[in-house]
Design a protein around this nucleic acid. Structure first.
Length: 563
RNA sequence: GCCCCCGUAGCUCAAUGGAUAGAGCGUCGGACUUCGAAUCCGCAGGUUGCGCGUUCGAAUCGCGCCGGGGGCGCCA
C-alpha cells in the first residue's frame, strides 16, 4: 500500500496534463501554481475536484472551462482513475475507478496495523508537551481535555511519520509549590495534635488533609524537631512526589503516558537557566528597574515581563517567574535536545504568554516557528444542565479519577475530542455516562462490535473468513461507498497532522461507522446462496473493521468485539 | 485599558478560500420471522450576528460594529 495520498497523485497527473498542454502550445507558458485538489463535497462531483483551472484563467487569458478541457485531453491514464470530467465553471472532477477501489480492500488488510500510517514526517523529531498540570493536586477536567488533545495529537503525528516524544513538564518550583508545602506541613503538625494556623494561601482540598495524616503516620514526630524551613522542604517534596505518582496513575488509567517527565528544577540545577539569562543579558534583552529584573523585547507590545523580583520572590533558591523558566526550557527543547519542533498544549488562560515565549525564543536566536503553542478553550463541567463550579485551591473540583470511576476512559477521550480546540465546551457528566445514541462513542464502537459479530456468525457456519475470495465482485454502490470512506483514513491523518487538529479523527470515526451501517442495510454479508460474494464481503467487512480499529486506536479508544 | 476564543438549522456542533453550507440530538412518519434495532430510511428546519472590503470565488481572509465566554495588568 502506497503511503502517497491519492489526492496528491491526482494533483500530479493534473500538473502533468497542464505541462503537456503547454508543451504542445495548447496553453500559454506560465509558471504552474500548486495544484489544488480536494475531496468533492457533493456526490455527483466525483471523488476529487480541482478548481485549479479557475485560478489560471487570468494568466492563461482563456476561459477556465477551455483550460480544463485542454488539460483533461492530455491527462495520462492512472490505475485509480475511473473517469475525468470538466464540470461547472471549469472544475476538473476525478472519479475513482470502481475496480481499483475494490482492489484496495486487500491492500488495506495487508497493511494491517500500519494502515493509515504515512510518511510525511521525513524523520523530523517533534516533541509534544501536554497536561503539565501543577503537581499540587489531582488532574481536573480542564487538564483532561489537555491530555486528550495532546495524546491523540501525538498519536496522529506518529501515524503521519514523525518521530514523536511525549513530555510532561513538572512545575516543581515556584510559589505554588511553596504554598502547597506549607499546607502539607501545617496539616502534618495538626495531625500530630499541634495547634498551628493554616497558611493564608494554603490548599484546602481534602486530599491535602489526607496527605498530612498519611505523612504523620509514616514519619511520626521526627519533623517536629527539625527547622521549619527544612521540614517544609522535606515534607512538601514528599507530598509533591506523591502527587506526581497520583497524577501519573490517573493519566495512565485514561490511557495517557509519557516518555519523559521533565522537572523544572533541573533547568536550574543544571545551570542552564543562568546561562540563558546571561545570554539574554549580553544581548540586551534584560533590564533592571524598580529593583526587579525584566525581560524586554521590541516585539512585545506590553513593555516588559518580570523575570525576578526580590519583593515577590525573596529566596534565590526559588524559581523566578513562569516566563523565566520557559526561556531555559525552550532552549533545552530546541538546542540541547534538538527537536525540530516543540508543540505545547496550553489552556486558554495562558494565551497571554504566547507572544512572550515567542519573543523569548527569538531573543535566544532561535526560530520561533519551531515552537507551536496550541491553545484550547475551557471546559464547563455540567451535570444535568447545571454548572459544576470548580476551584483547585478551595478544593472544589471534579477530578479525572472521579470521571473515570463514573464514565470510563473511552467516552471521556472521545467526547473531549468532538470539538475543535478553539471552542469552549460543555462536558455533561450525565450525557457522558448515558449509553445511548446521544453518545457518539458507542455509535462507533457498535459498528466495530457489529462487524465482529458478523464474522463470528460466518465462522459458526464454517465460512473461512481468512479466504479473501474475489474482491472484484464488490461493485455495489454501498460497498464502494464504504471503501471510499476507508481510503479517507489516510487523508484524515494527514489533515489532522498538518493542522495539528486531532478532532478530525472523531468526526471521521463517526462517518465511517455511519457508512458501514448503511452498507449493512443494503448488503447482506453472509448469504449461503452466493458463496463467492459472501467471501468477498467478508473480506470487505474485515477491512472495514480494521479501519475502524485504526481510527479508534489513534483516538486511544477501545474497539470492542462485543458490547 | 489590553489580549484571546466563539457567534452557522429549535439545541449541540462540523465544514484544508471553491460548485447546491453538512452531521447528531430534538419533532413527525416509516423499517426487526433473515448476519447485533446501541441500527437504518424519510419529512421539516438557514439572510452562516450586522456592515464594508480583498478575491474569478468568502461561513472561512482584512477592517469596523453588536452579542456571549475567558484571560492579563508582579500567582502560575
Amino acid at each position: 500500500m502506497t503511503t502517497q495520498l491519492i489526492r496528491d497523485q491526482v494533483a500530479d497527473i493534473i500538473a502533468a496534463g497542464l505541462r503537456a498542454a503547454q508543451a504542445e502550445g495548447a496553453l500559454p507558458e506560465f509558471e504552474l501554481p500548486p495544484i489544488v485538489v480536494e475531496r468533492s463535497r457533493q456526490s455527483g462531483h466525483g471523488d476529487y475536484a480541482s478548481p485549479t483551472c479557475l485560478q489560471l484563467a487570468r494568466q492563461a487569458r482563456m476561459a477556465p472551462r477551455d483550460i480544463a478541457l485542454r488539460v483533461v485531453e492530455r491527462m495520462a491514464p492512472a490505475p485509480f482513475v475511473g473517469q475525468v470530467d470538466v464540470a461547472g465553471p471549469g472544475y476538473i472532477n476525478v472519479t475513482l475507478s470502481p475496480a481499483w477501489l475494490a482492489s484496495l480492500v486487500l491492500k488495506i488488510l495487508a497493511a494491517g496495523a500500519r494502515w493509515g500510517y504515512l510518511d510525511l514526517g521525513a524523520g523530523q523529531r517533534v516533541q509534544v508537551e501536554y497536561v503539565s498540570a501543577n503537581p499540587t493536586g489531582p488532574i481536573t477536567v480542564a487538564s483532561t481535555r489537555n491530555a486528550a488533545i495532546g495524546d491523540v495529537l501525538a498519536n496522529v503525528l506518529e501515524a503521519a511519520g514523525y518521530e514523536v516524544e511525549r513530555e510532561y513538564y513538572v512545575n516543581d518550583a515556584g510559589s505554588q509549590i511553596r504554598h502547597f508545602g506549607e499546607s502539607v506541613y501545617a496539616l502534618y503538625l495538626q495531625a500530630l495534635g499541634e495547634n498551628v494556623p493554616f497558611p493564608e494561601d494554603g490548599y484546602h482540598g481534602q486530599y491535602v488533609a489526607d496527605l498530612g495524616q498519611e505523612l504523620a503516620q509514616e514519619f511520626g514526630d521526627c519533623y517536629l524537631r527539625v527547622d521549619r524551613r527544612e521540614a517544609i522542604q522535606a515534607l512538601g517534596g514528599e507530598g509533591i512526589d506523591r502527587m506526581i505518582a497520583w497524577i501519573r496513575e490517573d493519566l495512565l488509567a485514561l490511557g495517557v503516558s509519557f516518555d519523559t517527565w521533565f522537572h523544572e528544577q533541573s533547568l536550574r540545577q543544571s545551570g542552564l537557566f543562568d546561562r540563558c539569562l546571561r545570554r539574554l543579558r549580553e544581548d540586551g534583552y534584560i533590564v533592571e528597574r524598580d529593583g526587579a529584573v525584566w525581560f524586554t523585547s521590541p516585539e512585545l507590545e506590553s513593555d516588559a515581563v518580570l523575570v525576578r523580583s526580590p519583593a515577590i520572590i525573596p529566596e534565590l533558591s526559588e524559581r523566578p517567574t513562569y516566563l523565566a523558566s520557559d526561556v531555559a526550557y525552550v532552549w533545552n527543547k530546541l538546542v540541547e535536545r534538538g527537536f525540530d519542533r516543540a508543540i505545547y498544549i496550553w489552556g486558554a488562560d495562558h494565551h497571554g504568554d504566547v507572544p512572550r515565549v515567542k519573543a523569548a525564543t527569538r531573543a535566544l536566536g532561535l526560530d520561533p516557528e519551531r515552537i507551536v503553542l496550541i491553545i484550547y478553550q475551557m471546559v464547563n463541567l455540567k451535570r444535568g444542565g447545571e454548572d459544576v463550579r470548580m476551584s483547585k485551591r478551595a478544593g472544589e473540583f471534579v477530578t479525572l479519577r472521579e470521571l473515570l470511576d463514573e464514565v470510563g476512559p473511552d467516552p471521556i477521550r472521545f467526547l473531549l475530542l468532538t470539538r475543535t480546540a478553539d471552542s469552549t465546551m460543555d462536558f455533561d457528566l450525565d450525557l457522558a455516562v448515558e449509553q445511548s445514541d446521544k453518545n457518539p462513542v458507542y455509535y462507533v464502537q457498535y459498528a466495530h462490535a457489529r462487524i465482529s459479530s458478523i464474522l463470528r456468525f460466518a465462522q459458526e457456519r464454517a465460512w473461512d473468513v481468512a479466504d479473501p475470495g474475489d474482491t472484484s465482485l464488490l461493485t455495489h454502490e454501498s460497498e464502494l461507498a464504504l471503501i471510499r470512506k476507508m481510503l479517507e483514513l489516510q487523508a484524515v491523518v494527514a489533515l489532522a497532522a498538518a493542522q495539528l487538529a486531532p478532532h478530525y479523527l472523531t468526526f471521521y470515526a463517526k462517518e465511517l461507522a455511519a457508512v458501514f451501517h448503511s452498507f449493512y442495510r443494503d448488503c447482506r454479508v453472509v448469504d449461503e446462496d452466493q458463496p463467492e460474494l459472501t467471501r468477498a464481503r467478508l473480506t470487505l467487512v474485515r477491512a472495514a473493521r480494521l479501519t475502524l480499529a485504526q481510527a479508534l486506536g489513534l483516538l486511544g479508544v477501545s474497539a470492542p468485539e462485543r458490547m
